[in-house]
Simulated scan of single mutants.
Amino acid sequence: MAFEDWTSEKESEIFTEKTAITSAYESGAFYKRELPCIISLLQKIPLKNGDLIIVDGYVTLNDEGKAGLGGYLYEALDQKYPVVGIAKNEFNAPDSQRRSVYRGESKTALFLTAKGADVDDIHLKVEQMHGSFRMPALLKKLDQLSRA
């Protein structure tokens, strides 16, 4: 899904692809299962300078540099595009680059990490995304589309 601005109400494009998952779930290695699907879809999208990619999950997992799905994606794309991770569940290792984002009246945070972009700048932008609930409206729609 693409959108023009962080405050956009509606997406500008939706990209879909049905991809066979070729790797079984492996605890602690979520990226092995999901990354090939994401890369396959991104190869069909004309990415340009200034584009940023948001993933459902983490980019960094701890202060020791352990990568999450978004970190592996950032490397797979040769660090050309910033990758932002927005996770719904907290990862328990300390990460000085992780930010908790509270939106609307929710007392439950979203967890934000990034590579190639300033996490504090992105934090403000995620707070401003359209929708009055914890999950921004466009990200909720994306989540629903990915489960369909």
Rank of each mutant, 00 (worst) to 15 (best):
S132M: 09
F111D: 03
A67P: 00
F30T: 11
A24D: 08
L124S: 14
L73H: 03
D121I: 13
V59M: 02
I45Y: 03
A67I: 03
F30C: 10
I39C: 07
R134Y: 04
Q43Y: 01
Y72S: 04
A76I: 05
L142P: 00
I38T: 04
L110E: 05
G57D: 05
A67M: 11
T19S: 10
R99T: 03
L112T: 07
G131C: 07
R103L: 07
K10Y: 08
L142Y: 02
K44N: 10
Q97R: 14
F133H: 13
E34S: 12
L112E: 03
V101I: 15
K32L: 15
E17N: 11
K66A: 15
L145T: 08
E105N: 14
F133M: 10
V83F: 06
K80E: 12
I14S: 11
Q128G: 03
E127I: 14
K80Q: 15
E90V: 11
L69E: 05
S40A: 12
A137G: 03
I54M: 08
L61I: 04
I39Q: 06
E4G: 15
K10A: 12
V84M: 01
T7R: 12
M129T: 11
L42S: 03
G65W: 00
P136H: 01
R147Q: 12
G57K: 10
Q79C: 15
M1C: 10
S8R: 05
D56F: 06
Y31A: 15
Y58E: 07
R98Y: 02
G57T: 12
L73A: 06
S27D: 06
H123F: 05
E64I: 01
L138T: 11
G116T: 08
L112V: 06
I45T: 08
